[in-house]
Each structure stands twice: as C-alpha cells, then as structure tokens.
Amino acid sequence: MSKPVIATASLAGCFGCHMSLLDIDDRILKLIELVEFHKSPIDDIKTFTKPCDIGLIEGGCCNHENVEVLRSFRKHCKTLVAVGECAVMGGLPALRNGIPIKDCLEEAYLRTPTTEGNTVIPNDEELPVILDKVYPCHEIVKVDAFLPGCPPSADLIWEALTALLEGRPLKLTYDLIKYD
C-alpha cells in the first residue's frame, strides 16, 4: 500500500511553522517512513501531480497568488490544516488590516525615508496583487483543522499529524494549545 501523501505551503508566513515541523527531532525519521511528501518547499516539488491526503498551510493570504495556492491545496488535499497563527487568524502580516491598502502601499513605496525622485508603487504584471487585507485561510476555503501557535510546537504538529494519519481525534493536552 502506498504511503499517505502530504503537501505543505507557506503563504503569508515566515516559514517558522515549517521550521517547527522540522523541529520534531528524531521523529522526523519516523515521519519519512510514515508519509510521502509531495508539493512542498521541503522537497521543492512545485506542482501538484496527484491527490494528497493532508495539506499543511502556513500563513494567511495577503495576495492573489496566496489565494490561488490555497485554492489549489483545497482542491488536491483531502484534509486541509491551518498551521500557525498566520494561517488561523492572519497573524503578524494582518497587523496592517486596519489600514487602507492604498496608505500601506504609499507608505511602503512612495514615502519611505530613503525614497528619492520619481518612485511608483510596483505594478509589473508578474507581481502578485496584494489584497485589501490579510485573510485567515478559513475565510477563503474550508479548513478542516487548526493548529494555533507562533509557531505551533513541534509536539503539537506531531500529535496532529499522527492523529490524522491514524484517523483518530486530536488529543490536545493543555500544554499543546498556545497562541504564542
């Protein structure tokens, strides 16, 4: 029987949640035995070529490309997991959510202390379009499980992954649920 397939992505995140995933110490050897990694920065597979069992999403959606990646994860993954504060509630990038995006862009590109001469807000069509605010993943697609934390501890990620792989409910002890 083939191994369960996992895909991961970091959207508007800092890769800290991926680091925490790698922080499961020697359990990583067991994980490699248990699962196959598909589209993920961990193995640098860039496109989905088959359906996956579990999708781990780090980060919320701050631009249209994030939304497209998230939607493609939803399409390809049986179970979608929001990993970390940014995926769950927007996190640090969402600190801008109270500020109109026009002001954000102007502040970042036109009014910086180092801005000189005629500058523009970058508008190359290759660049992802930034959204009006940073969205938690579940406000864009259905999300099946949430792992809070900044980052979620390696133990929480391990517990969640093994629970999902074994098809049992999450056993979240008090020390595993943390938002910081």
């Binding site: 969402a94 406000e139 979240l172």
Partner: peptide, 16 residues
C-alpha cells in the same frame, strides 16, 4: 481560551 480548548473562533474576525 486555552482552558476551553479554542483553536479558532467560530466567528469572523472584525478587524476593528
């Protein structure tokens, strides 16, 4: 929220 095991609020964020 920890005691109640909250993983994500059931309500949409208001971004006040």
């Amino acid at each position: 929220a920890y005691r109640f095991g909250m993983l994500v609020p059931r309500f949409p964020y208001q971004w006040s």
